[in-house]
Structure formats: C-alpha cells, structure tokens
Amino acid sequence: MLKVKAGDLDKMALLYERHNRNLFGFFYKLTGSGSVSEDLVHNVFYRMLKYRYTFTEDTSGSHRFTAWMYHLARNVNADHFKKQKKVSYTDDMEPWERKLKVDENAHSQMAKSQDLELLQKAIKHLAPEKQEMLILTKYQGMKYEQVADIFGITEGAVKVRMHRVLQELREVYLKLEKV
C-alpha cells in the first residue's frame, strides 16, 4: 500500500486481487445481498484510491493494511446501515431465493433450514458493531489480535466482547425460537 501511496497505482490491482473476495464475504455476511456487497466492496477500494495518502506506515507489517482496509469497510458499512435505516428496514430475500433453488423437500431439511433462518435473523438483531466482530472472527478467520487492531481495543477486550456477543446471540435465538 505504501507503493500505491507513493504513486504506483498498479500495485492496487494486486491488493484488490488479494483481498476483494474476503471483503465481499465480510459484506455478504453482513447484508445477505450479493449486489449490495459488490457495491460496498467497490466503495472501499474507491476510498482506498481516493484517500491513499491517509495510509500510514507502521512497523507491524502486513496486518496494518488489513486493519486499515477493514477500518474503511466498517465506515462504508456504517454509511450503508444509516442509509438502510432511513429507507426502512427490509429483509433481503436473495440468500433465501438461492436456497429455494435447492431441493429441500425432506422434513428434516426444512426444520434445519428454519433453524438456520432463525439464526440468521438473530445475527441481524445484533448491533452492527457486534455483527462485524462476529463475522471477522468467525468467517474471516481473524485472530483476536487482528480484530483488536481494527477496533482499536485490546485483545482481552475483544475476547470479553466476543463472549458477550455469543451470549446475546444465543438469547436472541432462543427468544425467536419461542415466537
């Protein structure tokens, strides 16, 4: 990224190829929509190019770029979330549409599918910051140390928060199950 900052924009293509799928996965888990996630990935890379001069050198190596990238991604997600709130909340049906294409006639499959639907709903009930932390840890395979860098907190604080997030997720899930 330092080379990009210095004017070697071709290096941005390398960074894009290396990180775009992960970033897409991050947004997809948050939004449940492929097209929205594509837009948000584009926004992140647009901001990286536009604000490349704000990237600062750090001795901690490659993690620094990932932390910066997810920092921008969280801002993009916050903007998106605000916008969604203004427009009114709508549950994106895209992932369920995809699932409908699969043959799921069996009862057990249906029950499982309902459980997973509940779980997905429960995740959406969490505050955006909690969802982000959960996704970074669970699906992006990040260590607590990296998550701590992105959130600007200590590793210990990440563990405590993650534990609370899981407790809250379980409580919400159980509540939804009773409804």
Partner: peptide, 12 residues
C-alpha cells in the same frame, strides 16, 4: 451452527 449458514457466493 453458524458454519451451516449459506455459503458466500462468488461476486459477479
């Protein structure tokens, strides 16, 4: 159970 959630598709 979170492992069972729909996998992330490939972007267009």
């Amino acid at each position: 159970a979170m492992d069972e959630l729909p996998a992330t598709p490939e972007p267009e």
